[in-house]
Amino acid sequence: VKKMAKAIMADPNKADEVYKKWADKGYTLTQMSNFLKSKTAGKYDRVYNGYVIHLD
C-alpha cells in the first residue's frame, strides 16, 4: 500500500487507478489509515483524503 501511495504522490494522475484497486480489494478507511501511518505526520494525508473522496 505504501508503495502505491508513494506512486500517487509522485504522479497524482495514477490516483484513480490505485484507489479503484484498493476499493476492489475491500480496503476500509481504517485499514488505509493504519497502513499509511508514518513517523512523518501528515505525509500521506493527501492520499488518504483522496481515497475518502473516491469511496464517497
Rank of each mutant, 00 (worst) to 15 (best):
R46T: 14
Y51L: 02
V18H: 03
Y48F: 12
A5D: 04
A5E: 01
P12F: 10
P12T: 06
D24A: 13
Q31T: 07
D16L: 13
G42R: 06
M4F: 07
T28H: 02
Y48D: 01
K21H: 13
T28C: 03
H54A: 07
K6L: 14
T28L: 03
R46P: 10
V52T: 06
D56S: 15
K2T: 06
G50V: 05
V47Y: 05
Y27E: 00
I53V: 13
W22M: 02
K6V: 09
G50P: 01
D16E: 13
G26Q: 06
D56V: 15
A7I: 13
D24N: 11
R46Q: 15
V47F: 02
T30I: 13
A10R: 15
K20G: 09
A15W: 04
A23I: 05
E17N: 08
K3S: 11
D11G: 01
V1P: 07
K39D: 14
K39S: 14
L29Y: 05
Y51M: 01
M4A: 10
G42D: 07
K14W: 06
K21T: 13
D24V: 08
G42H: 10
A41N: 10
Y51C: 01
M32S: 05
M32Q: 00
R46D: 14
S33W: 15
T40I: 11
S38H: 08
A23Q: 11
G50C: 08
D45P: 01
A15D: 01
K37T: 10
K39M: 08
L29C: 06
L55G: 00
P12G: 07
K37G: 07
K21C: 14
K2L: 12
L36M: 02
I53P: 01
S38G: 07
A7S: 11
L36D: 00
Y27G: 01
D16N: 12
D11C: 11
Y48R: 01
M32V: 13
I53W: 10
Y27M: 04
K39N: 12
Y51P: 02
A41R: 10
A23C: 09
F35D: 04
A10K: 14
F35Y: 10
L55C: 06
V52Y: 06
V18P: 00
N34W: 12
Y51E: 01
D45A: 10
K37E: 11
V18I: 15
E17I: 08
A41M: 10
V52E: 10
S33C: 11
Y44R: 02
Q31N: 05
M32F: 03
W22K: 01
K39R: 10
I8R: 00
K2N: 02
L55D: 01
A15K: 07
R46H: 12
T40L: 08
D45L: 08
T28P: 01
V18A: 06
P12R: 06
I8W: 02
N34D: 14
Y19L: 00
H54W: 15
Y27R: 01
Y19M: 04
N34Y: 13
K2G: 02
K3Q: 13
A41K: 14
I53F: 10
D24G: 09
A15R: 08
K14E: 05
K39P: 10
L55S: 02
K3R: 12
K43H: 06
V47K: 01
M32N: 01
Y19K: 01
A5H: 02
I8L: 07
Q31P: 01
Y19T: 02
V47R: 01
M9K: 06
V47I: 13
I8H: 03
A7G: 06
D16H: 11
L55K: 02
A10G: 07
A15T: 06
D56Y: 15
M32C: 03
T30W: 11
S33E: 12
N34G: 11
A23H: 09
Y19H: 02
K39Q: 11
S38F: 08
K14C: 13
L29R: 08
T28I: 03
K37Y: 11
G50H: 04
K14D: 02
D56M: 15
K3A: 13
K3N: 10
A15C: 05
Y48E: 02
K37I: 09
K14F: 09
A7L: 15
K43N: 05
Q31S: 06
D11L: 04
S33T: 10
Y27Q: 00
K2R: 11
P12H: 07
K21G: 09
D24R: 10
S33N: 10
R46V: 15
K20S: 10
L29M: 07
Q31A: 07
A23Y: 09
G42S: 06
V47D: 00
K6N: 13
D24P: 00
L29E: 05
K2F: 05
Y44L: 04
W22G: 00
D11S: 07
K2P: 02
G50M: 07
G26H: 06
M9L: 15
L36P: 00
G50I: 05
P12S: 09
K37A: 12
I53N: 13
A7K: 11
K14Y: 09
L29V: 10
L36F: 00
V18D: 00
K3F: 10
V47E: 03
A5G: 03
T28G: 06
G26D: 03
S33A: 14
Y19R: 01
W22R: 00
K6Y: 08
W22L: 02
V1F: 08
Q31L: 07
E17D: 10
W22V: 00
M4G: 09
K6R: 13
T30Y: 12
Y44C: 04
V47T: 01
D16F: 14
K3T: 09
K20C: 04
K20W: 04
A5K: 03
Y27D: 00
A10Q: 12
A5L: 08
A7R: 08
Y27T: 00
K3C: 14
K25I: 14
K6W: 11
K21W: 10
L55M: 09
H54E: 02
W22Y: 02
D56T: 15
Y19P: 03
G42V: 03
V52S: 09
T40W: 09
A10P: 02
K43D: 06
Y48P: 00
D56H: 14
T30K: 13
K3P: 05
M4Q: 15
